[in-house]
């Protein structure tokens, strides 16, 4: 049994967002990077499955050298080895292409990742990887158990929960409560540096997207309270100020 967990290195949720180069680049200055929280759930479940099934567990990141602390943290949490595809993760298609290229060589039984990254929140990579490899993909997966060559999955759907069964290999986009986040222990931290981290160059086409401009969302305006009996004032404001009716 071979498990691949794809992780993103993303700005901490409390990071202050700013741009440089004429608003065409995200400014990394002073920003702390963390493992994508949803990827962290995927990794945590993968570590449990590894222990339970005696599987091997590889982490994969498409990113530049500054993502390595995040990768080593994944090794400290329990992955056996790691691969970094040395490229800026510009868009979902490009990243999926890199993951698929590695997966074709290594034929994993299970490819897990977060339901979405928390920087661009595209939520597309798992689906594209599944299509590229010609295997099923599901997201957002909240529960995962493996029985032989079958996966039992619970997935969040509009207004409820879907329970399904699928044959391996599979691609899954994960979210809580699939597992509890794991904190790396001292032993894991000390052994992380001895675990292999292979750096490979990207393959396939160049990135197909180009960033023209970044913008911050407009600041939230102050809330104005209008008494219920003054509904006309409200309608007036929606027409003249907010211009939405």
């Amino acid at each position: 049994m071979k498990i691949l967990v794809c992780v993103t290195s993303v700005p901490d949720t409390t990071a202050r967002i700013s741009f440089t180069d004429g608003d065409t680049k995200f400014s990394k200055a002073g920003v702390q990077y963390i493992t994508g929280p949803y990827d962290d759930y995927a990794l945590s479940r993968a570590v449990e499955l590894k222990e339970q099934l005696g599987a091997t567990l590889t982490v994969l990141n498409v990113g530049e050298a500054d993502a390595e602390p995040v990768i080593r943290k994944c090794l400290a949490i329990g992955a056996d080895d790691a691969i970094r595809v040395n490229a800026e993760p510009t868009d979902a298609y490009f990243v999926a292409e890199q993951i698929a290229a590695i997966a074709r060589q290594e034929s994993y039984d299970l490819i897990l990742m977060g339901r979405e990254s928390i920087d661009f929140n595209g939520g597309q990579v798992h689906g594209i990887v599944g299509e590229m490899l010609g295997i099923p993909s599901f997201s957002p997966v909240m529960k995962l158990d493996i029985e032989g060559t079958k996966a039992k999955i619970a997935r969040e759907i509009e207004g409820g929960k879907e329970t399904l069964e699928a044959s391996l290999p599979l691609v899954l986009g994960c979210q809580e409560p699939i597992a509890e986040w794991k904190i790396p222990n001292m032993r894991g931290i000390m052994t992380a540096r001895t675990k292999p981290l292979r750096v490979v160059e990207p393959s396939g086409s160049d990135s197909l997207t180009k960033v023209q401009k970044y913008e911050l969302p407009p600041p939230k305006g102050a809330c104005r309270m209008i008494p219920a009996e003054e509904a006309e004032t409200l309608i007036g404001l929606l027409r003249t100020e907010a211009k939405i009716i």
Binding site: P69, R72, K73, A76, I183, P184, N185, M186, I189, M190, A192, R193
Partner: peptide
């Protein structure tokens, strides 16, 4: 070191 930072984070 990166390792020491990881310990702090733990």
């Amino acid at each position: 070191t990166e390792e020491q930072r990881m310990i702090a984070q733990t």
